[in-house]
Design a protein around this nucleic acid. Structure first.
Length: 577
DNA sequence: GCCGTTTTCGGCCCGACTGTTTTCAGTCG
């Protein structure tokens, strides 16, 4: 079982426990454990086998037992018992906004409602309005929400898509003279790979004007709620967008608050409380101070963290896991940022179907302060206008000439090729060996069993000419998960043959993701970010990859992007050197 | 259910908005 599957079962246990009225804190413990496990870099299977689960802060005796049972028998007694009692459909009720613990309990206890269809029928019959706490207004609102759910509302969006939309709304808000600052917060800022809603933070001294403007934006289809300091709307594609308006001098406190995540805030607030302090979007203040005076300036997030005795903690690692302890101990990582990057290992030009010509790409990279790049033109399997063996030979020559003309920047010759069904490459191996860098991946015939795919990837790497495994899991964000394979074996083989693993910034992929990258790092793999750019504009996509790397607590020393061109070459493909 | 530099028992984050039980519970982020 993979970590995600363990997490899903724990979350289901939490949800079912809510319905039967279990202690709120017990429910929260299961829910938190689920999130911890989902984001854990090592396979839970291994931790169970090594009896190391208790090393995770937040997992105690009871949850460890459930996980052990899941590992050994494939089922959790608690989960099974709850499912027998109230059934699976009840969990859908949690997807209906407006329904929480109390109302779901009332529905279940008073009317025996434990599924969305029965809820809808009761609303249509007018039976809901008879329950205490459910006036006619609630009934009508629930009916609308049910219809929204039936239309597929509530789905999660790939990060790049949601980020694009968020930036466009941010841009519109910045048009308003009353808006002093506007930032995107929430899971987009943390770089979570799928996004449930968009959070925007605005500082202004004219809250009402800004809020009214926000609600009147052309894309807005529905106003969910509307208050003095916050408003929430739905935009065209059904994604929810929340606006929080805050006083200009509380920008740092507001941004911290609106970035999350929830577990991070709970940990921060528990810590503050122990220090006699209270932390919220209104800043940090003494716990029992009726005047609510902030203890210092709150213009920046750094000031907020400092006010509770912590150094700045980057958004990407705010998960309520180990970051606060690391802050206390002074062991926070020095995370990798764009200015650390010396080169990109994955980009192609008009030569193999890209949009921009090689000289333009190189000029753009130099402008960024990069010192080198690998030009990985695509083969014919990857693009209809891709290169064949002859094209690759010409490419290698072209790069040599180009290099002679440029000062202070190294262009490396590369190719992006396919590991074919029989574990070979779709280019001549001797030519591949002549390239500085060979990026190889799998894009065809992916619907095979794990043994077959693992073998294919390993055979590909065993040719000895591969420098890097491209988008190693083969997933397409929001479309399909990666192919089946044994990741540990693939990483081991990569290590043996000096093959790096790519963290692809391709907006369709983000592959490896943060958890897998963390796992690969733990297994001793070499990692490198690639923009997969085919144009000057898409060179920016490397930031998506770097953000996933930061979520995996990676520092410059963990990524080959931060070494020199010479070191990049000498550390990879060790077999043929 | 989990946890411990005041605690192995007794706590467990904070504030805004909505609708209804006209003084606050329920939900949300």
């Amino acid at each position: 079982m993979d970590n995600k599957e363990y997490a899903e079962i724990l979350e289901e246990i939490a949800t079912l426990q809510r319905v039967v009225g279990d202690n709120f804190f017990k429910v929260r413990a299961f829910s938190r454990a689920a999130r911890l496990i989902e984001n854990f870099a090592e396979p839970i299977d291994d931790l169970v086998d090594q009896r190391r689960l208790h090393e995770i802060d937040g997992i105690g005796e009871s949850i460890e037992e459930e996980l052990q049972a899941l590992r050994i028998t494939g089922a959790s007694p608690r989960h099974e018992e709850l499912l027998d009692r109230i059934g699976r459909d009840v969990m859908d009720l949690w997807h209906i906004p407006g329904l929480g613990i109390k109302r779901i309990q009332t529905l279940y206890q008073e009317l025996g409602i434990a599924s969305i269809p029965s809820l809808k029928q009761a609303a249509l019959d007018g039976r809901l309005a008879t329950l205490s706490g459910f006036g006619g207004g609630v009934q009508d609102k629930l009916l609308l929400e049910i219809e929204g759910w039936e239309r597929g509302r509530g789905r999660r969006f790939p990060l790049p898509e949601a980020k694009g939309l968020a930036e466009s709304i941010r841009f519109e808000l910045l048009n308003l003279p009353e808006v002093a600052r506007c930032e995107v917060g929430g899971s987009i800022r943390r770089g979570k790979e799928t996004i449930g809603d968009i959070d925007l933070l605005v500082t202004t001294d004219a809250a009402r004007t800004v809020s009214d403007y926000f609600k009147s934006l052309p894309d807005v289809t529905e106003i969910i709620f509307d208050g003095d300091t916050r408003a929430s709307v739905r935009v065209t594609n059904e994604i929810q967008c929340d606006l929080r308006v805050i006083d200009t001098h509380l920008f740092g406190a507001g941004l911290h608050y609106f970035t999350g995540n929830k577990d991070h805030h709970i940990q921060m607030r528990i810590r503050s409380k122990k220090m006699g302090l209270k932390i919220s979007e209104k800043g940090v203040m003494h716990y029992d101070d009726p005047t609510e005076t902030i203890v210092g300036p709150m213009d920046t997030e750094e000031q907020v963290f400092n006010a509770v005795g912590l150094p700045y903690i980057a958004p990407e690692i705010r998960m309520g896991k180990d970051e606060i302890k690391a802050g206390e101990d002074g062991t926070l990582p020095d995370l990798v940022y764009p200015h650390h990057v010396q080169g990109d290992v994955h980009l192609s030009s008009t030569i193999s179907g890209g949009r921009d010509a090689l000289p333009d790409l190189i000029q753009a990279l130099q402008k960024r302060g990069y010192k080198w790049c690998v030009v990985t033109e695509k083969t014919k399997t990857l693009h209809a206008k891709g290169i064949d063996d002859r094209g690759l030979k010409e490419h290698i020559e072209r790069v040599k000439k180009l290099n002679a003309m440029i000062d202070g920047f190294t262009v490396l010759s590369g190719v992006e090729c396919e590991i074919t069904f029989d574990g070979m490459l779709d280019i001549d191996l001797r030519l591949a060996a002549e390239c500085d860098w060979v990026l190889a991946g799998v894009t065809t015939d992916t619907d095979v069993d794990a043994d077959t795919m693992t073998q294919r990837l390993m055979w590909g790497m065993e040719t000895g000419v591969v420098s890097c495994l491209a988008h190693p899991t083969g997933r397409h964000l929001g479309v399909h998960d990666g192919y089946k394979m044994y990741f540990e074996e693939v990483v081991q083989c990569a290590n043996d043959f000096g093959v790096a693993l790519e963290i692809s910034g391709d907006p369709q992929r983000l592959d490896l993701n943060a958890q897998m990258a963390g796992r690969a790092k733990h297994l001793g793999a070499m990692l490198v970010c690639g923009s997969a750019a085919t144009s000057v504009e898409s060179l920016d996509h490397i930031e998506y990859a770097l953000q996933q790397a930061r979520r995996a607590w990676m520092e410059p020393k963990d990524l080959l992007n931060c070494v020199s061109a010479e070191e990049l070459i000498s550390r990879t493909r060790t077999l043929i050197r």
